[in-house]
Design a protein around this nucleic acid. Structure first.
Lengths: 361, 361
DNA sequence: TATTAGTATGTAAGCGCTTACATCGCAAGG
DNA sequence: CCTTGCGATGTAAGCGCTTACATACTAATA
């Protein structure tokens, strides 16, 4: 028996050494086994001392803690994830980081997650659907404990992968009665509708829109739909030539204004799909000598910090990006912690009246 | 022998079932073993078919691929990482996502990484040093294959952890002769110095600065140092009252101008630590009726997209954020792929002359 | 004092992969 | 026809953890 053990140990040792050479690591990093040996306890005790301290006597707990420090032990996340089936990692795929509003949400999301010991895995889709599918697949492969998606508009494959993997997910930013996953956001359409109500109240009758690109973007679509709904509600015509969709940049906003202006009966007010487009409209108007709000009323969407500094200050809609980010993180953590189901939730998106809107002359 | 095997199998089966109940998974997800069984090959062949396709005959490769599809097999990243000691994951800790310039770099970094099959793990430090240490520790625990840090100013613990873990790292954004890790960025000081040269050429003698917060921020410090160096070079005094440091917001920029203006001999030109502060200065000047550039010249730093749309358009310094992001990603991937060492690199940061600077009256 | 609960440890079986090494064929060379 | 060699597969040993279960104690109860 003793001999057998010795033999086994030798074999093990040889294997270890081989492995070591293979991976090329010079000084092997310590493992639970090393800590256990050094502290004179079992690996189970080490694991418990680290993960559920009160299941271990104070004496051993301290001894383990000391050895951990002495040897500079760093647990292996991969091994832990494999053994426990939990990675303490949440994944997200966003269209781009390069957008202040998403960034604010993701920032808040990450911070909340981090406070609960989770790490955020960020991937970017660049508004490319196949790429998005790929990114979700990778996140799932990586064994994320949860997933956060922006908006409700995602390829069917994405939903299927999420369902098959039984990975808790939350979609932010949107608002929908029957989302494929719980949805924490706000009612884009209602917010846009409300802004148009305001314009109509001011006497505007020819209202145009420079919307964001709606393909694969339910927020942009909802905002546009809200505008059209409001117009219909007030018995105003939806003139196709007064609606245009543009990508996200000041210059495209400028183009948008140029386009609407080319119509025989140009609008007296323009609702924009986001603040960047709205600013573009303002810049173009300024360069053309069109006075805002005297000649043209403009409303943005997002309430970027800079909009309050412009002159005239932009009337816009506040997007609750930080609350959304925090709420989503909390919802996922709660689900992971005690199984409380993730509830859809809608935050208010207040209308921020400033100086770019005025009664029609 | 046969009986023994049967016995073993039973034990295994019982264990499996127990485990299954423990993890609570309803329908077990398929593993390599399932694919191997279904395809009538060994697990090794499955692994090879998936990871190094040309080591396997076309026939088996296809059979495996088919079964993978049929069973909806998704490899486990954790198991793969544990067994291969590679996670195909790169970590980064940035001060905040909520900053267009970082976002642009991270975006480019992620995209490049993704193209090479790596996933980006983003964490945020919120400019908090202990928190940064914690985040680096977590990334290392997660077994990232590489690390990207912003700037050169990091707690000693961070450097030590990186060194101990032997994890390849790159610091971006800065520029230094003897960095602790390779550094891909640009020379902030030289860029700022160059801008001041320009101001001096225009005849400015009283030049102030609204700098970014320099604590724990080598970029802000370098920019300030560059300004002071330029002043000294031209034999101009560095008047402490004409230098102020402010956090990152338009309002702080406004405060900065207010502060410099309260000096008996206010500056005729102000160099700003970044564009947001510069815009704040411009907004405050506008509200005070100070004409830019007639009464005051202003220079920003970063070249945010909006700066070209302002009137007057902001003179600023272009930061090569996208090249930096791409180069860092490529450097790390190259190191991981064929061991080519990561080289420090400095990109040019061109001076963008626009309309906020003018000869002193 | 014998018995019963706990409570604190230890033992060892996996988690799902990768990969060193052993085998097995088969084609080419002697 | 028998080696030799090499590419294609299989075998099985880990990777570093977690955790169900067994065991050893201790203290309280009968």
């Amino acid at each position: 028996m003793l001999m057998k053990m010795t033999g086994d140990n030798n074999i093990t040792e040889v294997a270890r050494r081989t492995r070591r050479r293979r991976t090329g690591a010079a000084a092997k990093k310590p493992t639970v086994a090393d800590i256990a040996r050094a502290a004179g306890v079992s690996t189970a005790t080490v694991s418990r001392a680290l993960n559920k301290p009160d299941a271990v006597s104070a004496k051993l707990r301290n001894k383990v803690a000391r050895k951990v420090r002495e040897l500079g032990y760093v647990p292996s996340g991969a091994a832990r994830a494999l053994a426990s089936n939990r990675s303490f990692t949440i994944g997200t795929v966003i269209p781009t980081l390069n957008n202040a509003i998403f960034a604010a949400s993701v920032d808040a999301f990450e911070e909340t997650l981090s406070r609960h010991g989770y790490t955020l895995l960020v991937t970017v889709s660049n508004y490319d659907r196949p790429h998005e599918i790929e990114q979700v697949r990778r996140l799932l492969e990586r064994g994320v404990d949860g997933l956060m998606l922006i908006g409700l508009d995602h390829p069917e494959e994405v939903w299927q992968m999420i369902e098959r993997s039984a990975c808790p997910a939350v979609a932010i930013w949107g608002h929908n009665d029957k989302p494929r996953v719980p949805c924490i956001g706000f009612d884009n359409a209602a917010a846009a509708e409300h802004a148009v109500d305001h314009l109509v109240e001011l006497g505007h009758r020819r209202i145009g829109m420079v919307a964001g690109l709606s393909f694969g973007n339910d927020r942009a679509r909802a905002r546009r739909a809200g505008v059209e709904r409001a117009l219909a509600k007030h018995g105003l015509p939806v003139v196709p030539a007064l609606f245009t969709e543009k990508a996200y940049s000041h210059d495209y906003g400028r183009d948008g204004l140029t386009e609407l202006l080319s119509h025989g009966a140009p609008p007296t007010a323009i609702m924009c799909g986001n603040d960047v487009l709205a600013m573009g409209v303002m810049f173009e108007a300024r360069d053309r000598g069109i006075a805002i709000p005297d000649d043209l009323s403009v409303v943005g969407f997002d309430n970027l910090p800079i909009t309050s500094q412009l002159r005239p200050a932009l009337t816009t809609i506040e997007v609750p990006s930080v609350p959304i980010g925090m709420a989503s993180a909390n919802a996922i953590v709660a689900y992971l912690t005690d199984g409380s189901p993730i509830q859809s939730k809608s935050f208010p998106a207040p209308f921020v009246m400033r100086a770019t809107t005025q009664s029609v002359r």
